[in-house]
């Protein structure tokens, strides 16, 4: 049980980077971007092929970041220049990336077990079972803080305003089209970076490993917001990181139920997201009803409610 939870923490921290990317598109830009399913694998594909061909794993992971940036920009251009609706531009890019990923990888699965990866390097530097978790935690928190700072810069502010009130930013001479392209690029850069690390953590890159990634990202964002809240940017991004780790833990717990097996992962994910979306609203309604009842009692009138 403890080892399973430990593993859940480790992968949760790595997936948190992906969730931060989803936060950028879904919450900051208010753009439901399905490119994520494809760009996550693109990151893994670029990194794994470079590693197999003898490249330094850190260089390979950074290269994955740029590949994801390009994929996100492509979605942004489809939407802003091509006038395609946000959801559809993401879906088109996701499906196109499936083939592109296969082209990059050359085969559906690239094993990395025998290669030197970021994970094996970390383990040679600090020989402890905590090393990967701590390294990834530090890396994820650095990315979180850089994101926080970026969203407070002049560019970051207009990016947020695009998702908040697009017409208004345009009247303050911001090019909202390019802002969206930039935002989606950054979002998918983080997603691909996370994909590259996940591939190295798992010891392989599979062309199908991105399926449902957007839902996992959303689950992390929503669970985090329910637990931590999102009153400020720093708090919201922290919520995303915590949400990603919690999500992994919930899945690990769920998989311990006898009749569920790994094939049920996507179903579990969908159920978690549904619960996370519906439960807070139900609780709010219940609280409101309780308040109303209390007020009526205070007024001394007979309760009609």
């Amino acid at each position: 049980m403890m080892t399973a939870m430990f593993g859940a923490m480790e992968s949760g921290v790595i997936y948190a980077i992906m969730a931060l990317g989803v936060y950028l598109s879904f919450r900051v830009l208010d753009f439901p971007d399905l490119t994520v399913d494809g760009s996550f694998v693109t990151g893994g594909a670029v990194a794994s092929i470079m590693i197999v061909n003898g490249s330094d794993p850190f260089t390979a992971t950074i290269a994955a970041l740029f590949a994801g940036f390009l994929a996100g920009c492509a979605t942004g251009i489809l939407h802003t220049k091509g006038g395609i609706n946000p959801l559809l531009s993401g879906i088109l890019m996701m499906i196109a990336l499936y083939s592109i990923n296969l082209r990059i990888m050359g085969k559906p699965n690239v094993p990395l077990l025998a290669e030197e990866t970021v994970m094996t390097k970390i383990n040679t530097w600090f020989a402890s079972e905590w090393s990967v978790l701590l390294f990834m935690l530090v890396l994820t928190l650095i990315i979180k803080f850089v994101t926080d700072l970026f969203l407070k810069t002049e560019v970051g502010l207009s990016l947020r305003a695009v998702g908040d009130n697009e017409g208004m930013v345009r009247s303050f001479s911001a090019n909202t089209g390019w802002m969206k392209v930039l935002g989606l690029g950054l979002s998918n850069a983080l997603v691909a970076f996370s994909g590259a690390l996940v591939a190295q953590y798992n010891g392989f890159n599979d062309v199908g490993m991105g399926i449902g990634m957007i839902v996992i990202g959303l689950a992390s964002v929503i669970i985090g917001e329910a637990v931590i809240g999102h009153s400020s940017i720093a708090r919201a991004t922290l919520a995303v990181v915590v949400g990603a780790i919690l999500y992994r833990m919930i899945v690990t717990l769920a998989l311990r139920i006898e009749f569920l097996d790994t094939g049920d992962m996507k179903l579990i994910t969908a159920v978690i997201v549904i619960i996370a979306l519906v439960l807070p609203k139900m609780l709010d309604r219940q609280k409101a009803a309780a308040r109303k009842k209390k007020r009526l009692q205070q007024l001394g009138g007979s309760s009609h409610a």
């Binding site: 002049e154 560019v155 502010l157 207009s158 947020r160 305003a161 908040d164 930013v169 303050f172 001479s173």
Partner: peptide, 25 residues
């Protein structure tokens, strides 16, 4: 922009005549 603070909104307006950079708003 409703989800942003008063000072952040003013910062957006302040940038109207300038190029936006990575300096803090």
């Amino acid at each position: 922009a409703p989800a942003m603070t008063i000072e952040e909104n003013l910062a957006l307006a302040y940038n109207r005549t300038k190029t936006r950079t990575l300096a803090f708003g």
